[in-house]
């Protein structure tokens, strides 16, 4: 089977992005990598967290709403995590 990138995979997910309302925000220091953020550059299954120039950049648009980042960052209080507004976000067709 042909290798798939994460972009290939995310392309397959139906996602009604709530453009003006990010449901997750980094509220702490994006350069403080130890506080769960660097860990998310590995653990996030949608690659929403990437390292750029010593800081973690976060993009919520591809989020699969799994909750892993909230759990990782909970003790550091540097993430604001909500569900997307009703009917926004992902809609799995198989699940």
């Amino acid at each position: 089977m042909k290798k798939m990138t994460i972009e290939d995979k995310l392309f397959l997910v139906k996602n009604n992005v709530d453009h003006d309302h990010p449901h997750i925000k980094i509220t702490g220091d994006e350069k403080d990598l130890k506080k769960g953020l660097e860990a998310m550059t590995y653990a996030c299954p949608a690659n929403c967290y990437t390292l750029e120039g010593g800081a973690v950049k976060f993009a919520y648009e591809n989020c699969l709403e799994c909750g892993t980042c909230r759990i990782f960052c909970d003790e550091f209080n540097n993430l604001e995590w909500n569900y997307p507004r009703g009917s926004f976000g992902i809609s799995y067709r198989c699940g």
Binding site: L10, V13, C66, C94, G95
Partner: peptide
């Protein structure tokens, strides 16, 4: 053919 990719806790 991969039809869908998903993640869940």
């Amino acid at each position: 053919e991969v039809k869908e990719y998903m993640a869940h806790l």
